[in-house]
């Protein structure tokens, strides 16, 4: 696929109605990136699940020490962030530029909330002397959640750039391809957490 082809398809518009689109919303390059990221998380989740098989008691004991309330709050924050981004895209499709920018800012706020909760969650664990070397479960817990948190930070950086352009009136109902690109990445970050939360915090 040529670089030109990656950018050629049109943004999804309300007037398209029920028409089936050939390409997902946003830049095709971001979808290649998204699929690669999903592949990486698939490997990590699979390795976690099968490693747990050999250490059932350790994983069950250690999972009981996790703060599932923090995990739940963070899930609610990411879902809310994803909803805000979906509302931002819906608003720009109606040419509501200001409202779209406000929804993007709310999504970034959700990301900030996620990182604050994660900061306190990690802080409590580190204060208890827990680190990557504590045991196999905590190696997975810290590696998986920190790797995901890095994606949250990258997603927020992308949304910040999209927000800046939205504030400058850079998007419209006819041209919001860039916003859909950022939105797609942010939804991927949410989608991964939808599996990470039950896998690490709930299923024991």
């Amino acid at each position: 696929m040529t670089a030109q082809a990656l950018h050629q398809h049109q943004p999804h518009r309300p007037e398209d109605g029920h028409k089936l689109h050939g390409y997902p919303p946003g830049d095709l390059a971001i979808w290649v990136f998204i699929l690669a990221e999903l592949g990486a998380f698939f490997v990590l989740f699979t390795v976690y699940a099968f490693t747990r098989l050999k250490h059932l008691q350790l994983f069950a004991e250690m999972q009981r020490t996790l703060d599932s309330d923090a995990g739940m709050i963070n899930t609610l924050l990411l879902i809310t962030g994803s909803w805000c981004v979906a509302r931002a895209v819906a608003a720009i499709k109606r040419n509501h530029c200001r409202a779209s920018a406000h929804w993007l800012l709310a999504a970034i706020g959700s990301g900030v909330g996620f990182l604050i909760v994660k900061y306190f969650e990690y802080g409590a664990k580190f204060a208890a002397g827990i680190n990557l070397d504590t045991n196999l479960f905590y190696t997975f817990y810290i590696a998986l959640t920190a790797f995901h948190a890095m994606h949250v930070v990258l997603g927020m950086a992308i949304l910040l750039l999209v927000w800046k352009k939205a504030m400058a009136g850079g998007y419209s109902a006819q041209d919001h391809h860039g916003m859909e690109t950022g939105a797609s990445y942010w939804h991927m970050v949410d989608l991964v957490w939808i599996i990470l939360f039950p896998l690490v915090y709930v299923m024991r």
Partner: peptide, 19 residues
């Protein structure tokens, strides 16, 4: 999330199927 937030509901099966 895939169908309604990522908006893949009305995208060709190949892309929907991948995710």
């Amino acid at each position: 999330i895939i169908y309604d937030f990522m908006a893949l509901r009305r995208v060709r099966l190949l892309w929907r199927g991948l995710v």
